[in-house]
């Protein structure tokens, strides 16, 4: 781990839900363009770490630094603004707004950022094309398959050209073939845009798409032994 020059860095994160600690002094760092897998058994605090890193929840103690900002000190509104402009998200399921068409779903982050509808939808269409699902533009999420939906979600995460993409079990609900395809597209697109990817997964084959892995066990994140 080389914190110097890192894009996003967390130190000594503690977070407890009730009496059970989810994070117990976790450290983490990621560099621009790097894909880092966060692994660990279920309930080990992987998702909590991701949420803290993305500024979605505030740790009980510890700091998260993103570039010059200390996320842990920012107001909720500033954090939200940062998430809109600099971060992208892919979740396991249920993330597309069911009423909006796929195109509108992809355009949504841009529109939340203030981009005009026409321009947002034009860029959204580019990303749908790039993820080979442009034929779904007019369909609603309820009418597409799981793998297609995940591709739309990835397009949505990438449409703002974020600097960090947070992916929480992005292939968790997919069969291996679709999962592989989605991972290939995600890492490829991230490499092209020099986005860092924080990839939470419990699947080794998914983690193998990362440049390195971090194992969370009992609320503590460990750099894999012997890794560079």
């Amino acid at each position: 781990m080389n914190p110097a020059g890192s894009l996003l860095e967390a130190r000594a994160l503690h977070k407890a839900y009730g009496p059970t600690p989810a994070l117990d002094g976790a450290d983490f760092a990621i560099h621009p363009g790097e894909v880092v897998a966060v692994m660990g058994p279920s309930g080990s605090g992987k998702s909590t770490l991701l949420h803290c890193l993305a500024g979605i929840i505030r740790p009980d103690s510890g700091t998260v630094r993103y570039g010059p900002h200390a996320l842990t000190d920012l107001s909720d509104a500033r954090c939200s603004a940062l998430r809109r402009s600099d971060f992208g998200f892919v979740f396991q399921f249920g993330q597309l707004v069911p009423e909006l068409t796929c195109l509108e779903n992809v355009a949504l982050p841009l529109r939340l950022n203030g981009t005009k509808r026409k321009e947002a939808e034009r860029r959204a269409r580019d990303w749908l094309t790039r993820l080979e699902v442009d034929d779904l533009a007019a369909k609603r999420p309820g009418d597409v398959s799981g793998g297609q939906g995940q591709r739309v979600a990835i397009a949505r995460a990438l449409v703002t050209t974020p600097r960090v993409i947070f992916a929480d079990e992005p292939t968790g609900a997919l069969d291996s073939l679709n999962g592989e395809r989605v991972m290939g597209l995600l890492t490829e697109a991230a490499r092209d845009t020099r986005a860092a990817v924080v990839l939470v997964t419990h699947e080794a084959r998914v983690a193998a798409y990362a440049d390195r892995e971090v194992v969370v066990r009992d609320g503590i994140a460990r750099e894999a032994v012997g890794a560079a």
Binding site: A77, S80, R84, F89, F91, G94, Q95, V97, P98, L112
Partner: peptide, 16 residues
């Protein structure tokens, strides 16, 4: 609930 949380993760404003 889940969708709302996802939208918040995106940085959607409460006002929106």
């Amino acid at each position: 609930r889940r969708l709302l949380s996802v939208l918040v993760a995106f940085g959607t404003r409460r006002a929106t």
